[in-house]
Design a protein around this nucleic acid. Structure first.
Lengths: 362, 362
DNA sequence: ACCGTGCATGACAACGTTTGCATTGCAAGA
DNA sequence: TCTTGCAATGCAAACGTTGTCATGCACGGT
């Protein structure tokens, strides 16, 4: 694409090549594109391609997009954080998006919301990624007011459930919401520990206000209460999704009169922190304390012991999100589908859980 | 942008809004853009904005780009690997690129090379990211033949030095090459250990064929030979940039007749592996063995002990790369500058190094 | 009253590629 | 020899926005 203000004296790209070779611009255009090259006689096509390469021809993307009326490109919106891609969620979701989009011949752009103080969500979105055909929102969690502003939004849009506030029903958002089935995942984590004979089970939860934390807490409590193993209030700790929170939380639980024999952790990092704190306190995992995480991040297999965890199928979520964007982009101007797509969260049983010892039973 | 094949019966966007309000499309275009909105009378501007919102108007990016002749978007080319963003190099470089581009009002796209068997590098590049104004190449390392094909390349392009083969002079590539000063960094790692009194220093190197590994080996050896502390051949291990390689390498070193009291590791992961292997062998780091890494990745501070390492300033490299792309895009069609920009690699002294014990001196 | 200036607005052509439809030439078959 | 079908190619319009230049009107100064 030529620089602005540099008025061309000679003809533009394709027209200039056509003039040089004595053919029409249509022929040059056909020769240059893989999907129409076969319509041009081989010897002529070669000449066109050779001259194009010699003159370093690059097609004008604006002209192409205007004429074809097609823009196969989507944007992933992420938080502005220098460590953002090291997170299992963002790093793997982005890699999955890249893969899923490439498989469809679509491009991926990435940007941040850049929401200034006092501006509404709608205002922030107004000039966001105008050069793409759809948005996958992975950025800062939205408030209930933000979610309201999504109603009636016409651009193809997918929201990850993690960005929803706990109190909002996903199906009422007015856009597709993709996420993991936290409740079922948490239930199966608790269920595993129950099956292993544990009855004194602690919970190391995530932050208040987090959709994932909220749903995982719900899943743990439902299963434990149903089994008559409702954790004592002092066996429940709420904190950030971090190893430090896990350490603090476990130390708190270990100080109780009758410590738990197992803990459910709301994410893998909390679990790592808990395992570390147990080790420091002289407890062996899983001999003295079973630990279950949630995420199945890259370190879940590498840590000692390898972590039993609930897998968050991020590549599947990415694949689903891209599919929804491509589908919505095929009929532009329509309302987004109001739907919730929850991926199942399989259990990965590894080394950090074992049956409760007889002496540990209550 | 309308879907292809869907012939509009009514007028297009701006023209349709103009017709509805009885103004000219020029006025609507001015009202809709922040930079020209002030030219339109306020009451009229409000009417235009209200109608645009009611009709869910989105500007046609193809038409804009064609008419303005501007495309402020760059593409980062990465390997196709589901774990790619967890790597310190890729994760932090991408985050840095996002930040640097946003600061300049540029967009970031991300894609993979998708190079099929038997195709040349030039062929793979030919249809790559045609909708952006420049490329930052972070993908698979190039062969000397690949590098030759970059000569004469006209699109704005930046290559990270990590992608260069060891034998190629960076300044001869014909495009800007951005990297870290590996040699100086490696020298300072070796120098630190020498200053701490170590004279029996082992090397856990990266893979043959890697530019970074090649340069770091050179830096270590230059400094150690100069100090008369050239490592014995059996104190040098070459392997992948991985924790496993570090473990294997250190175990090999520990089996030698007179084990080193310190090791230089060609990246942080090798260092983690070495620390782990030392621990398993009953050695304390840094009491019994000092370890220096290279990268200063996100785990360097979190591991036990915190790692002394050479910092690879990836955010600076990203900032520099984006600046070079934006600068080159300002004069399209010109040859890329043949240049090498090496960032200094500062030393981060933490807990994994200490002065050699008197009894350990030779 | 007249003239000059500035503001708001409109007209118009341009940006560069692509595609639908028309044309032409050539080969094959009747 | 004539007709028909097909491959290759060209013409012309289209895609939607915006920059540049022109114009009209209101206001202030002489």
């Amino acid at each position: 694409m030529t620089a602005r203000g540099s008025r061309r004296l000679d003809k533009t790209g394709i027209v200039q090549i056509a003039a040089s070779l004595g053919v029409s611009p249509s022929t040059v255009s056909r020769a240059l594109r893989p999907e129409t090259a076969h319509l041009v006689r081989e010897d002529r096509r070669k000449k066109i391609l050779d001259l194009a390469e010699k003159q370093h021809f690059l097609p004008n993307v604006g002209a192409r997009m205007l004429r074809k009326g097609v823009n196969m490109s989507l944007t992933v919106v992420v938080p502005l954080d220098e460590n953002i891609f090291f997170s299992e969620f963002y790093g793997r979701f982005l890699a999955g998006t890249l893969h899923a989009a490439a498989a469809r011949g679509w491009g991926v752009q990435i940007c941040t919301l850049q929401r200034k103080e006092g501006r509404s969500f709608r205002e922030a979105m107004q000039h966001l990624a105008l050069n793409s055909s759809g948005l996958i929102y992975l950025a800062e969690p939205l408030s209930p007011a933000d979610v309201q502003e999504l109603k009636g939004y016409r651009r193809p849009f997918v929201l990850t459930k993690s960005a929803l506030p706990p109190v909002v029903s996903a199906a009422d958002v007015g856009v597709p919401v993709v996420g993991v089935d936290n409740i079922a995942g948490a239930r199966s984590a608790a269920s595993l520990l129950l099956q292993l004979g544990h009855r004194k089970i602690g919970l190391l939860l995530g932050p208040a206000g987090s959709r994932d934390a909220h749903e995982r807490r719900q899943g743990y409590l439902e299963m434990l209460e149903k089994a008559g193993a409702r954790p004592r209030p002092e066996w429940i700790h709420e904190g950030a999704f971090s190893a430090e929170s896990g350490r603090v939380g476990l130390n708190k639980l270990l100080k109780t009169a009758e410590r738990p024999t197992a803990v459910c952790c709301a994410n893998d990092e909390i679990a790592f922190g808990a395992i570390n704190a147990a080790h420091v306190a002289g407890l062996k995992c899983p001999d003295d304390l079973s630990v279950v995480g949630f995420d199945d991040g890259i370190w879940a297999t590498a840590c000692q012991p390898a972590l039993t965890t609930i897998r968050q199928p991020l590549a599947d979520m990415a694949e689903r999100s891209v599919g929804l964007i491509v589908e919505a982009a095929a009929s532009p101007g329509r309302l987004n589908r109001a739907m919730l797509d929850e991926m199942p969260a399989p259990m990965m049983i590894r080394e950090s859980t074992r049956p409760v010892r007889v002496s540990d039973r209550k």
